[in-house]
Amino acid sequence: MSENGFAHEVDVTVIVNGERVSRRVDARRHLVDFLRLDVGLTGTHTGCEHGVCGACTVQVNGDVVRGCLMLAAQADGAEVWTVEGLSDNGSLDALQKAFVERNALQCGFCTPGMLITAADLLARDAKPSREEIREHISGNYCRCTGYEAIVDAVEMAAGTRAGATQAGGGSQ
């Protein structure tokens, strides 16, 4: 990161899934493209690229954010978790099992974003109602399932979680 002035290329260091990653990126590089193209983590998907579909949802410093509405340059010094890291550390275990169990995906394109958004909800509220689940995932589009199975799966994971140890997002 250039300390004070403007730059078209920016040096960034980001903690991605617990690992320090340094790259030089275009100032205009979206965080999601940084993760996919510069770091090689293609689990986070690029959908609409203007903040509507939710396929690029990742965790930044504990918050769910749109990877297409944040620049990689802005993530310098931040801690980012993607579906890869949250899968590897077990944070998404209950949700992933429930998604498989309930057939909550067909093509799977929306699934990484859905999982991260659902994990964010369950970290805030261990027993959300179906209405609250719908509300929370309302910014994540699925073109296959009609959402019913996804809501089922999140509800099921919440049930699983009630007796389980805290399995919130990796950076929470």
Binding site: A27, R28, E49, L71
Partner: peptide, 17 residues
């Protein structure tokens, strides 16, 4: 869907911005 080139600077305080 990718922005055109621009320069970026991170302001450290209000006078700097």
């Amino acid at each position: 869907m990718k922005p055109a080139q621009f320069a970026y600077a991170r302001a450290k305080d209000l006078p700097h911005a």
